[in-house]
Structure formats: structure tokens, C-alpha cells
Design a protein around this nucleic acid. Structure first.
Lengths: 206, 206
DNA sequence: ATGATAAGTAAACACTCGTTTACTGTAGTG
DNA sequence: CACTACAGTAAACGAGTGTTTACTTATCAT
């Protein structure tokens, strides 16, 4: 069955996430699954193919999550008040969900770590890292905040700076959660940051 | 002369910063310097020793910079007003100087990248990364902000959350500066962030 | 039962790894 | 000049790399 194929992919990802692609040997992957490396080549035609299938899986997963969590169009037609609270709640829950994925979900966490280790020698990976984890989210939030300022939901200010203020703690807390010691209160800190951010930047209603 | 020894160290660091320690071969280091790997062993007794000397150098450099940029004690005796502006100016210039070091200085930038690539398999490196680049600066700023709140320089709020708000953009902009495309305006964005932060959180003087 | 198909092992392949050894210049000193 | 110390080369070492090959099982439909 193709269950072995899946186990190989996940085991390889776990090792790639810790040591990097080059430092992980085919023998190590096979050995961790209790088989010889010859058997592994029945399921993948090369070590590189495992890596490519992992990336392919993440791209697919990312598209699904983007389609699922995209801002629903119907909220635009609602009243400004409902739109405000709905959008802010959406942003908060979406952000926390994303954080959980990159820090607690096995595939998300391992893939993010692997990307971290491969970013400087693989241009495709570098692009992905910027698009999904660094510059991309900032630009996305910038556009969203600019729109919300125009609608009078957020106080007027520099939308790019505001996006940086909102997203940067998300990014730093991910890195801090990689240290085994202080990985527990990261979610609480992020939640407090988001609520603090909303309270400080929302137009006070009458 | 020991000039060759220095060239080996810097060349190895450059390669480690791109590909990671394991993925860089001794032949590659020697080849980049136009010599054979046998000659390299006249200057270092092993590949690992080069790595250790690099870390040793950074520890020493870091101690020097810490000693140099530490908050001068005399400012504590000055008037609250002078203390405030002096401290805030110090924080701003210190932060910008640090940012330049990690993004523009060859040794600082390469070492930071190498640390990024080795953090998940080297506990010593992981500790360093947290202490110098992630959790450490946040805790440091937290203590500083708590003190400044007690002295009435900053508005009262959660000092840890405030430290996160201040430092996280610094951390994210470093990552963004690694992408070759958008590495130019990072300093400007960081400057704007700091000025914005100071303006928003300083107690308005009469 | 028989043949086919898939999944596994063990060994070999050519190559590279980090490291060591034997040898070659070459500069400086008595 | 002879001697020493150093910096370099070329080659070999054993171990490990990704990959291929020949061979062994076990499952399963006809």
C-alpha cells in the first residue's frame, strides 16, 4: 500500500526540518522506518523527489487553507458596525489559527523549519518563505488595514507601519516557540497582543 | 603568516551561512581560496575547529559591543526630562546600529545566517539565537520599559507586550532584508517604526 | 496451483567526505 | 652553505554518499 510512501514523506520531512536536506542521508530516513535504503527506492525514484513531493504537498495545503479562510465576500454588504466586528474577529481567529498551524501542527511546523534551513540556497524556497511568512502577510494586512481605514473602522495612520506592528509579533513568537523552554505562553502573548492592537487602533464608537 | 588563517575563517563562514555547516566541504572552502584541502589543515586541525573559532570570535565581538553600547550609568542621575530624551535617543541609535550590524556587516550578517541554519541541531547555537536575537532582547527591553514606566517616562501598560511591540518589527525586518529584492527600505521602515513607537508611548509633557 | 506484481534485502557501484601521510619548495638564520 | 620551520601539493585512507542491480519473499487474481 501507499501507506509506506506517506510514512517516508513524513519521516524525511521531520529529519529535513532538524538537520537540513543535505545533512540527512537516505540511509537515515530508511533506518528510522526500520527498512533498508534499497526499499525506499521502490517508493521514490530519488532523494530529491521526496523533497519535491513535500513542497508539492505544502503548496496544495496552503491553497486549501487560503480558499477556506479567505475573507467572506458577503460581509462587505453588511452594516459598517457588523462589518467591523466581523472582520476584526475574523482577523483574530484567522491569525491564531495560522499560529497554531506553524507551531503545533506537525506538517506545518516541520515544513516551516525545513524552509528556514533551505532558504539561503534554494531560490524557490526563499520566495515561498517571503511570500507566506514574511513580506507576504505584511503586504496583505497592509491592504486590509488601508481598506478598513477608508471604511472608518480603524484610525487613520500609515497602513504599512500598522501592518508591521500587527504581524511582526506573530513572526517573532513563532521563532521563540522553537526554543523548547518558552514555547507555552506564546499563544497567550499573541492573543494579548492582538486584543491590545484592536483596542488601540479601532475607532471608538459612540 | 596568519593572514591565510583569517581568510579561511571568513570564507568558511560565508559558505556556512549559505549552505549550513554539514553541506559545506573542506574541499569547497580550500577551493574558493585557490588551494588544496591539505594546505588548509596546516592552519586548522579540523573542520569543526573552524566552526568553533567562528563562534568564539562572535562571542568576543558580542561582549565588546555589549560593553560599548551598554546604557551609561551617569544618565540615571540626571533630571527625569534629560533622562527621558537621552534614554530614548540611546535606544533608537542603539537599535539602528544593531540592525545595521546584523544586516550589513559581513561578519554579523553571515554569522546570523549560519546560526539560523544550525539552530535546530546545535543546542549551544539555539541558546545563542534565543539569547541574542529572539527572547533575550525582548526581556531586556521589558525590564528597561518597566523602569521607564516607574520613572514616568513611558505610559503605564504591560511592559512585556510593549517590548514585543517594539522589538518584533526589528526581528521581522531582518528576515525580510535577507530577500534580495526588498532589502533597501528596511532601515527606513524600522526608523519610522521606532519614532512612531516613541511618539505613541511617551508621556506627553506639559 | 501458477504466474504476476509489489515490497523487501544485501551487495556492489562510482563518488565524495574529513583526515593523514609523504614529499616539494621556499624563506630565513647560524 | 647547511639547517630549520613553514606552507603547499598530491595521493591515499576508511567511511559514508545516492543510486542501481540481482535476488528473495509474500500477496493475490486467474
Amino acid at each position: 500500500m501507499s501507506d509506506t510512501r506517506e510514512k517516508i514523506l513524513l519521516t524525511a520531512l521531520r529529519l529535513f526540518a532538524c538537520d537540513g536536506y543535505e545533512a540527512v542521508s537516505v540511509s537515515a530516513i530508511a533506518g528510522m522506518l526500520g527498512m533498508t535504503k534499497g526499499a525506499l527506492y521502490r517508493h521514490y525514484k530519488s532523494k530529491r523527489e521526496i523533497f519535491d513531493r513535500i513542497v508539492e504537498r505544502m503548496v496544495q495545503l496552503d491553497n486549501e487553507r487560503a480558499r477556506k479562510h479567505d475573507v467572506p465576500e458577503e460581509t462587505f454588504d453588511q452594516s459598517p458596525l457588523a462589518y467591523r466586528s466581523a472582520t476584526l474577529d475574523n482577523i483574530k481567529s484567522f491569525t491564531l489559527s495560522q499560529f497554531r498551524f506553524w507551531t503545533e501542527d506537525d506538517f506545518g511546523r516541520d515544513f516551516r523549519k525545513m524552509v528556514t534551513l533551505e532558504q539561503y540556497r534554494n531560490p524557490e524556497i526563499a520566495d515561498w518563505q517571503q511570500k507566506v511568512l514574511a513580506d507576504g502577510p505584511v503586504s496583505y494586512m497592509e491592504d486590509l488595514f488601508r481598506e478598513m481605514m477608508a471604511q472608518g473602522v480603524l484610525k487613520s495612520s500609515n497602513p504599512r507601519l500598522l501592518a508591521l506592528d500587527f504581524y511582526a509579533p506573530f513572526y517573532l513568537l513563532i521563532s521563540m516557540s522553537d526554543a523548547p523552554s518558552n514555547g507555552e505562553n506564546a499563544m497567550d502573548l499573541l492573543t494579548a497582543h492582538i486584543e491590545n492592537f484592536i483596542e488601540r487602533n479601532t475607532v471608538t464608537r459612540k
